[in-house]
Amino acid sequence: MTSPFPQSYPSTRLRRLRQSAWVRNLSSENHLTPDDLIWSMVVHDGDEPTIPVGSMPGLFRLNVAEAAKAARRASELGIPAIAIFPHINPERKDDAGSEALNPDGLIPTVIKAMKDAAPDVGIICDVALDPFTAHGHDGVIDADGYVLNDQTVDLLRRQAVMQAEAGADIVAPSDMMDGRVGAIRDALESAGKVNTMIMSYAAKYASGFYGPYRDAIGSASALKGDKKTYQQNPANSDEALREVAMDIDEGADLVMVKPGLPYLDIIRRVSDTFAVPTIAFQVSGEYAQIKAAGERGWIDEERVMMETLLCFKRAGACGVITYFAEAAAQILNA
């Protein structure tokens, strides 16, 4: 078999392109900029400005006022968008996740405050019920604890419209119910929100990397069982392409692969196959591992943080949702 790279030593010395910073930068195949970052942010409905999340060192839940300040920081740093996730008072939770549909609830209030503070920063809202349900699942459950698809989709479409009417630029269904993207697209069109974008969690795996996030939004202790009946099997790759194809056909503008680092192969396959904007989500477990190892001196935290973000670009992602967005943007702007 003829090699596609017929160069040979010593006429070709690949180290020539690595000998100094300027030539390494010049010959880099991929580059990371603040434009590639989406700031993953947890907001809460209390008065306390910031509340630390024990399982995610350095991460804080922000109240409405602090979230607005963070939006201004994002604008100053050149971070184009923020993805917000809610932590609500447990007293407001029920089995149907009714608080998710409250037009005066936490998420609509935060959207309005952040858009007022920084109109140029895009706001992405998670469309899912798990932060609002007493049982911690992403939808309505039956007596056996099985999440009911169609009943859940009806609630999600109403939730998405409410978020769009509050000013969200992108609604991001993360529930993995079948048919929810099409239902949300139809609902947005009917509501006159034709320019609201949908970023589908198209390939969201039933992963062990979500634990710290569930702690951050307050669903960890409430969750009964697991989410394997609706989130994707980590053993499958072709299935991800089917999920993505269906979501694009139903009206998704952007698609996401979640988690990030353990699924770089999926990011590459999705990006190459569909040529649509593909987002990687560097999830809470990835963040926590890097922070914990950095605190112990086992790795160079800053270097590993930047290396992982660049890996997503190399794999084909056009953007990365990450809890490291603010820190990474500060380094990139230095």
Rank of each mutant, 00 (worst) to 15 (best):
L106N: 02
P4A: 08
E302W: 00
R180P: 01
K313T: 08
Y205R: 01
R15Q: 04
A191L: 05
P262A: 10
D300H: 09
N149A: 15
A203D: 02
L106E: 07
D226A: 00
Y9L: 09
A117W: 06
A67C: 13
E243H: 02
L188N: 12
S221M: 09
G54E: 07
R16F: 15
V53R: 03
G260D: 13
V53K: 09
M162S: 02
E91Y: 07
V153P: 02
G218Y: 04
F5D: 03
P103K: 00
L155K: 05
S237E: 06
Y210S: 02
V121D: 08
I88F: 08
S75K: 13
A240P: 14
V42R: 06
R16C: 07
V127G: 03
A134G: 09
T50Q: 14
A164C: 11
P80L: 02
G192V: 10
N333V: 02
E286I: 01
M56Q: 05
H135I: 00
A164I: 11
A187F: 07
I331T: 13
L148V: 15
D238E: 12
Y323G: 11
M199A: 04
A118V: 14
S219Q: 11
F60Q: 15
I198A: 06
S28L: 03
R72T: 10
D35V: 15
C125D: 13
G54I: 09
G225R: 05
P277N: 05
R157E: 00
I82H: 09
N195H: 05
S221Q: 07
N102S: 07
R269K: 15
E99Q: 09
L77G: 00
C318I: 11
Q159W: 05
W22V: 15
N25S: 06
E76Q: 09
M305Q: 10
Q163T: 12
A160P: 03
N236Y: 12
Y213V: 00
E243G: 08
D226C: 02
I107P: 08
Y263C: 14
K93A: 01
P80E: 11
D116R: 07
V161R: 06
L310C: 14
Q163K: 15
